[in-house]
Design a protein around this nucleic acid. Sequence first.
DNA 1: CCCTCCCCGGAAAGCGATTTCCAAGTCTGC
DNA 2: GCAGACTTGGAAATCGCTTTCCGGGGAGGG
Lengths: 330, 330
Amino acid sequence: MVTLEDVAKQAGVSLATASRVLNGSTRQVGADLRARVERAADELGYRANIAAQTLARGSSNVIGIVVHDLTDPYFAALADGAMRAAATEGLLVMVGTTHRDPEQEIAYVATLNAQRVRAVLLAGSRVADQAVTGRLREELARYRDSGGRAACVGQDLLGVDTVAPANREGAAELARALAGLGHTRFAVLAGPPHLMTAADRSAGFAAALEELGLPAPQVIHGPFDRDGGYAAARQVEDATCVFAVNDVMAVGALAAYRERGVRVPDDVSVAGFDDIVTLRDHVPALTTVRLPLADMGARALELALNEEEPVVVEHVAGEVVLRESVRRIA
Amino acid sequence: MVTLEDVAKQAGVSLATASRVLNGSTRQVGADLRARVERAADELGYRANIAAQTLARGSSNVIGIVVHDLTDPYFAALADGAMRAAATEGLLVMVGTTHRDPEQEIAYVATLNAQRVRAVLLAGSRVADQAVTGRLREELARYRDSGGRAACVGQDLLGVDTVAPANREGAAELARALAGLGHTRFAVLAGPPHLMTAADRSAGFAAALEELGLPAPQVIHGPFDRDGGYAAARQVEDATCVFAVNDVMAVGALAAYRERGVRVPDDVSVAGFDDIVTLRDHVPALTTVRLPLADMGARALELALNEEEPVVVEHVAGEVVLRESVRRIA
DNA sequence: CCCTCCCCGGAAAGCGATTTCCAAGTCTGC
DNA sequence: GCAGACTTGGAAATCGCTTTCCGGGGAGGG
């Protein structure tokens, strides 16, 4: 392992000079010494030990991102946006996946704290469990007390800067658009009741229907994934329009209908939420609420890095996109 | 920032003892001292500084994964598999995305080297550019000389352990299956000519056709993504069956046909490669070659961690999955 | 009962960088 | 030609932890 000392020795200069040349400093170094050091470093193939730098500098150039599941395109898009932003700042990224286990999330924050990462991004929905949320909050507070920065994409339950999709409003907007097509009997594939994102979307949708004087939708709970949508769709009793609280569930629902020979949108209309890019070519094309996921990820990083009092919560509006999975009815 | 020294002081023990209690060691510590230290750590909210540990121990508990693009489900699945495996080993993960820029890949290896990560996983295809590959190889050699471990998912161009999908064989198998359905005039949406994965699949397909005594397919090059498939499909001249070298391109091709009113599989059959999970519900269901991506990622990590002479290259067979996007013809 | 060996606690030497503080030049301006 | 202000190079302290080495005390064997 080539160390800075080796380089300094080879170049015939002091450690200090070598450090100043190679690893950035406010101080100038004469042209000839600088050249000697650079040549030595090159010849030896020197690579600074970042652990040592982090220790000496007291801060690292790494950020952490914690997501539920990378294979879920929602999180992949979020993470990608944040990673692109990180790259432009010269930051490295540690990604942790919790696979929806809140304990894992807490553990990951602790670990990232131990790593002294510059910032932590928490993506994904909080659950409505006070005990767990409290512990996460505590761990986060510990991290921030020691100078760490944090931001959150999803709900603002944590007292940190947050980029929050306007789930309620987006779902309400969607409900109005669908009602505008003549639908009156709705079902909501609502996901898990304790998951805030799911609950907010479901509630926003129902609230809008109520405002419009329409009957309350049939609400069916279940997992937040493709198979959850598939299973929930089979329980729909009598609705002309089904709202799945995310696109992946909506795709599951479409699969269930297809299997049973129920035509979409002729027999039933289906809508989702998120506008996942990978699903843009789905047939029938999914009506949904578009969220600028990559931008949200990037924005969250920005918020974290420039974190200041007071805590800011940015709401990101979704845009209703009507596609062929819904139709106007008589 | 609470340091180990603070904990030791509070517990009234030496630094060494505190270290032994909190951060694992072969040495035993008496029960009462151990309890005192644990209580002190807990009260103060101590979190070990991993940079310092890494420096002192000379090795870290982080691995690096370099992928082209996280929003591409192929890489997401690979990364997810590797990350699950890492988690069971208690390892943390740094993910780098290159967005298909080989320079970025080299830079990332250098950075991971600087981080002294325990292992590096390189996912994604090499390009057939000797100069760039040489530099990557060099950087990798530097890393491995200093004790780093590495493995690769894709081509084995780098002299490191590799998990390589049997691209040629899989594509050949697919060609035989499609020929078995009566097809004789083929087109290949072949992706970029210099990308090894794409080239191998394309070549394997063509070779199998030749063996069967069938005419050579029309080969159309273009980008390796959805839009590349879309664009390439429009250039197909006269074929009853189109093979896109990956699923994402196949989906683009399907979209192109749909727009032009060409029915799949009635008018033309389409097949892809990879069997991306997110696309399983696509209509029409995509005929493809299934690759166990998550397993491959996990296996690559395993190889890297247990790396030994000689270099091992594991070929992973793909499984042809016939679905409704192809049909038997007269 | 003494000696040896083992077990456990602490002092201190690293790990590989950064950065402060000094000292010695080098330029200015008069 | 000289004082004072800048530059520039180097020695050494420091970051927070691990680990070797040393020493003291208790257990076990002769």
